[in-house]
């Protein structure tokens, strides 16, 4: 168990450095800061991957069985998603927002009580490959929504500046609002099918384990709420009067729903889904 916790500690610091570098790149606009930031992201991602690998060997099952492990997976997916985006679209300014979010997630994971960090045996209900597929796909979805969240905030800021014709140098370096809009759409185009797959595989697992694929428990219901919000986003983009700003707000509210779904439901509401 110690190995995975050590890798977590390393990844924690690496992600902090990564976030600082991207913010530095945004403020000072030096090529070398930007390149170092990208390299650092790879290093952090490697350490992150090693947490998952070590965890798998230590526990004997897929490394997403509780809140701590799933946070590690979430950050991992965010880092990969961001790197792909940076590679295709060269938008390092976005890294300042996204990698900061990733580091915040690492902080949250590190604050979890010890019992989440220790290895626990899977109880009978959790021993199913459908569970593993369910958790995996859901968290890829969350990562997509997280990046879209960052992009939507940037969109609203940039859009405001463009409307007013103002010139704020820090925001000038943001990509154009139309680009930010399309990039957040792309992220949700990944996030939404993965979330849907997550909901459906979760239902399939529930059906195998307990005989009901849907029981309106708070976790299931909140995943549906999140789904409704992002479905609204997808339709808002093709509805007059709802493109642009309102759609961006839906993306932001959607991610707040994701946060509640992920953390709030386990700690604030009672129910079956107390673990992950």
């Amino acid at each position: 168990m110690i190995l995975s916790l050590m890798f977590f500690d390393m990844a924690y610091w690496f992600y902090l450095i990564t976030a600082i570098l991207y913010i530095g790149n945004w403020i000072f606009r030096r090529d070398w800061i930007g390149s170092t930031a990208t390299v650092m992201t790879f290093i952090a991602l490697f350490a992150n991957t090693m947490i998952l690998v070590a965890r798998t060997f230590e526990s004997g099952h897929a490394p997403f069985s509780n809140l701590y492990e799933s946070m590690v997976l979430f950050v991992w997916a965010m880092a990969i998603g961001y790197l792909v985006m940076e590679f295709k679209y060269k938008v390092k300014v976005v890294g300042a927002v996204v990698m900061t979010l990733a580091f915040i997630a690492m902080i949250a994971a590190s604050k979890l009580p010890y019992r989440f960090q220790s290895i626990e045996r899977l109880n009978p209900a959790l021993q199913s490959i459908w569970l593993e597929i369910h958790v995996f796909t859901t968290f890829i979805g969350y990562a997509g929504f997280a990046i879209a969240f960052g992009l939507s905030i940037m969109y609203l800021v940039k859009n405001r500046m463009e409307e007013r014709g103002a010139k704020v140098s820090l925001i000038d370096s943001f990509p154009q609002s139309s680009v930010l809009d399309e990039l957040s759409y792309k992220c949700i185009m990944w996030g939404f099918p993965f979330l849907t797959t997550g909901i459906i595989t979760g239902a399939y697992w529930a059906n195998n384990a307990w005989g009901t694929y849907w029981s309106w428990d708070p976790k299931e219901t909140w995943s549906l709420i999140t789904w409704f919000i992002y479905a609204a986003y997808l339709h808002a983009r093709v509805t007059r009067g709802w493109r642009g700003k309102r759609a961006a707000w839906l993306s932001i509210i959607g991610f707040l729903a994701v946060i509640f779904l992920y953390w709030g439901v386990s700690f604030v509401l009672p129910g079956l889904h107390a673990y992950a």
């Binding site: 060269k90 300014v93 000038d172």
Partner: peptide
């Protein structure tokens, strides 16, 4: 997406 703007 090329950053055509002011990155010196």
């Amino acid at each position: 997406m090329e950053e055509k703007q002011n990155i010196e």
